[in-house]
Write a protein that binds this DNA or RNA. Sequence first.
DNA 1: AGTATTTAGGAGAAAAAACTCCTTTATTCT
DNA 2: AGAATAAAGGAGTTTTTTCTCCTAAATACT
Lengths: 157, 157
Amino acid sequence: MLYSRPCEYAIRTVAYLARTGTERRVQAHEIAIAERIPAPFLAKILQQLARGNLVNSFKGPGGGFSLKRSAEEISLYEIFRVVDGVETLDRCAVGLAECNDFAPCPLHDTWKAVRVHLLRYLKTTTLKEMAEAVVRKKELVERMACQGRKKNRRSPP
Amino acid sequence: MLYSRPCEYAIRTVAYLARTGTERRVQAHEIAIAERIPAPFLAKILQQLARGNLVNSFKGPGGGFSLKRSAEEISLYEIFRVVDGVETLDRCAVGLAECNDFAPCPLHDTWKAVRVHLLRYLKTTTLKEMAEAVVRKKELVERMACQGRKKNRRSPP
DNA sequence: AGTATTTAGGAGAAAAAACTCCTTTATTCT
DNA sequence: AGAATAAAGGAGTTTTTTCTCCTAAATACT
């Protein structure tokens, strides 16, 4: 997989915050329940996001987390950078420590092209995409529920 | 990273066998030393490759492993399939268990495009590429060594 | 000031991945 | 047949990643 489990959780967390809006403070355990992520672990990840300046954090009663920027200003790449660190993308295709641009391994050039593509995906995919896609999915679910009822009328058991 | 550590080792192993030719039997510990891979672990990986019909295995004196096919007939995808299993590529972009083509998560379509690209890379990159690239690298190293000597003459300490 | 709340941070536990070690099996050679 | 060799297979150990638990710190409210 392209990025770690914690990074997956981070993406879903930021998406959750994006859907709730930038003003409201959301507590870690609320996100954990909604997204089925282990709460203490999510707290750690949220701290990383806060240190990386992707979210605001507020202690105490009424505290919680909120996004520092709007959804379309946050790319997958930024989350990935903060949680996994970008060095993981620099790894040689076959794990050779000495492989680099100056002394490339046999797969270096082809793998580099893949890497460029992956980086583009990460940098161009924003959390806006995720928020919008959820809206689209809801419409789809409602449409499918409607079709489901029609089909039941036509096909008695 | 796209595939596991064992899969990296497998690719390097198959490349090593490709360079030695399909006839000669190569022992596990020879490859382990040459590629700096833990020998007992490599033996396990080689067994997977044998079970997956990528290599021949021979027990006893004079035994070892050899490729079942020529380098250009073995893609990275085949090695990946045998060592990691292809289900790892089916994983949702953000780790949602219920995400599939019929109930896609918000990133499903964009991630799917990335996946297609990765699959193409894996399926079109063969071990022939690796074997040829090693030859090219040797020529480059010799050329650089030559330039290194010229430069030393020009730049006394 | 004291209490409650929620994040921040450190240490440890559990799970998964990587790796090691030992026995068994199959093959070759004498 | 016996010995040597090298793969095959199983179990165990180590390392890394994921996750849990506990304490400390900061904030809001009374």
